[in-house]
């Protein structure tokens, strides 16, 4: 594909949205300037830009802290969730034991547990990670367990007709079968981990984008708050696409609703 063609395709795909977005920003700017809205209430885009540029020197360490909390939490949640999902699938007894407390834990708002975790684990990245993990953990357990159980009964009949060992069936059939389910839960989990990490930084941290928002708010610097918000959402989107890319690499045979409706 030539670059020109690529650009044309990109334009067709995202052109309208981009134009609408740009118009909205311009309108925002004009409204702020014409109507004399106080900067602490709604700063103009140009001011947000200026304040964000001022933040650049300190940004790396805060971004680093948040990204580490997100991915740390994300991986901790995977490492905890997958064995639980496997256990639950293979042992009806343990399922009955594990699920009720898990559901209880899930129904408690994580924001409410976070201060407790801070007391137990201390201030800093490790507790931010764990808080992010508690938020991200649940969908992975549920979806992975569902995927492991979703293997078609006829396929299991077939493996039985080979007199196959259970461990072989697990590695060669159940686990790959669950992969699409696992990855779709990872996409949910990574966005949850972003929320969890930011919440943790709100509650107690001296680094991270959550902390930076809180600090800007304390300084009545609304423009900086907006800037950090934009950075956060960009990080959130990048994290999501990283997982989506991993999915494509790990299960290329699984194409979720490829080329859906192309309606105008």
């Amino acid at each position: 594909m030539t670059p020109v063609l690529r650009a044309a395709i990109w334009l067709r795909e995202y052109g309208q949205a981009t134009i609408v977005l740009l118009l909205a920003v311009v309108a925002w700017e004009i409204i702020c300037q014409q109507m004399d809205i106080p900067v602490w209430l709604l700063p103009a885009p140009t001011l947000i830009w200026q304040e964000t540029v001022l933040l650049i020197p300190v940004l790396p360490e805060h971004i680093y802290a948040t990204v580490i909390a997100i991915f740390g939490g994300f991986f901790v949640s995977i490492v905890a969730a997958v064995p639980i999902a496997i256990t639950v699938v293979y042992s009806p007894f343990l399922r009955r034991v594990i699920y009720p407390p898990l559901l209880m834990l899930q129904s408690v708002p994580k924001v409410a547990i976070a201060p407790l975790l801070l007391i137990w684990m201390g201030y800093g990245l490790q507790s931010n990670m764990v808080i992010a993990a508690t938020v991200a953990f649940f969908p992975i357990v549920i979806n992975t367990a569902t995927g492991l159980e979703a293997v078609e009964t006829e396929l299991l009949d077939l493996t039985r007709s080979f007199d196959a060992a259970r461990l072989k069936v697990f590695w060669k059939v159940r686990l790959p079968w669950a992969m699409p389910y696992f990855f779709s839960s990872l996409k949910v989990a990574i966005t949850f981990a972003v929320i969890g990490a930011i919440v943790a930084e709100f509650i107690g941290a001296d680094k991270g984008l959550g902390y930076l928002i809180l600090a800007s708010s304390g300084a009545m610097n609304t423009a900086a708050m907006f800037g950090v918000l934009v950075i956060m959402s960009v990080i959130g989107i990048l994290c999501f696409y990283a997982v989506a890319l991993a999915e494509k690499l790990v299960c290329p045979w699984y194409l979720p609703t490829q080329e859906g409706s192309q309606g105008a």
Binding site: D157, S161, P176, M179, Y254
Partner: peptide, 15 residues
């Protein structure tokens, strides 16, 4: 292992 089975659906491993 002297018996082979074929079902209504092919149930191939998609990966």
């Amino acid at each position: 292992r002297e018996i082979g089975m074929v079902f209504q659906r092919p149930i191939l491993l998609p990966w």
